[in-house]
């Protein structure tokens, strides 16, 4: 089932969307999510290596197992302040 991923700033501009839907393998990790984004939304492929994944508004590492129903957000390099 496709999972929604929130996009912001440069990522939203490149994808021309605030959210995208990606198909994930069962028991997907954060790395799987990033790989799926790169394959399914080629416009984001170049920016992806600089991005982090946030699950329920917390950064997670590559091997983090993404729970069903969790909120997924692609976080490009931040520049607040």
């Amino acid at each position: 089932m496709p999972r929604e991923v929130l996009l912001f700033a440069a990522a939203a501009e490149l994808a021309a969307a605030r959210t995208i839907a990606v198909d994930l393998p069962p028991a997907a990790t954060a790395d799987d999510v990033l790989a799926a984004i790169g394959q399914q939304v080629p416009a984001l492929a170049e920016l992806l290596p600089a991005c982090r994944l946030a699950v329920d508004q917390t950064f997670v590492g590559p091997s983090f197992s993404v729970p069903a129903g969790a909120e997924l957000a692609l976080i490009p390099p931040v520049s607040g302040g």
Binding site: F8, A9, A10, E13, A50, A54, Q57, A73, I75, P76, P77, V78, S79, G80, G81
Partner: peptide, 18 residues
Amino acid sequence: VAIWKQEHFADGVHQWVH
């Protein structure tokens, strides 16, 4: 912190700051 800045220059160019 999940905040992003886009810089708008006088020459009309605007870009996300990375």
